[in-house]
């Protein structure tokens, strides 16, 4: 179970939070002029990177505020949390890159279970 730092309340257990998927996707104001494909891009399509990305969380059992976080999906490590409306901080994951693009330790990559 992860520890997550709410930018309003501090560090709490993951069980207090709900997940909200990719961050920084704005609802289009001009949907009427969009093609089906463009609209579908907004409604259905999300990135799913192995590595660093920005995502949304809500402190459901706490202040109930939404916030954004930068997390490395290959290690589950949170690199930054910030309030809604604030720009995404420029942070990168620590650790050495492997050929698969993952850190040597901390990742679930079976190929890197043993130090070589």
């Amino acid at each position: 179970m992860l520890l997550i730092t709410c930018p309003h309340c501090g560090t709490r257990d993951q069980s207090e939070f709900t997940y909200g998927g990719e961050a920084h996707i704005s609802r289009p104001a001009n949907s009427e002029t969009m093609t089906d494909a463009q609209w579908a891009e907004f409604v259905f399509m999300r990135n799913n990177p192995k590595g660093v990305w920005a995502e949304r969380w809500m402190h459901a059992s706490g202040c109930r505020k939404w916030f954004n976080a930068v997390r490395d999906t290959s290690t589950d490590r949170f690199l930054a949390v910030y309030k809604i409306g604030e720009p995404r901080p420029n942070v990168t994951a620590a650790g050495l890159a492997t050929p698969s693009g993952e850190p040597v330790i901390g990742s679930g990559n079976d190929a890197a279970k043993v130090m070589r």
Binding site: I105, G106, G108, A112, K113, V114, M115
Partner: peptide, 16 residues
């Protein structure tokens, strides 16, 4: 999620 290391002296895998 620590990585093991083979130690030929043991011989065996030990924590890295």
């Amino acid at each position: 999620r620590g990585k093991l290391r083979f130690d030929a002296g043991l011989p065996g895998f030990r924590p890295g």
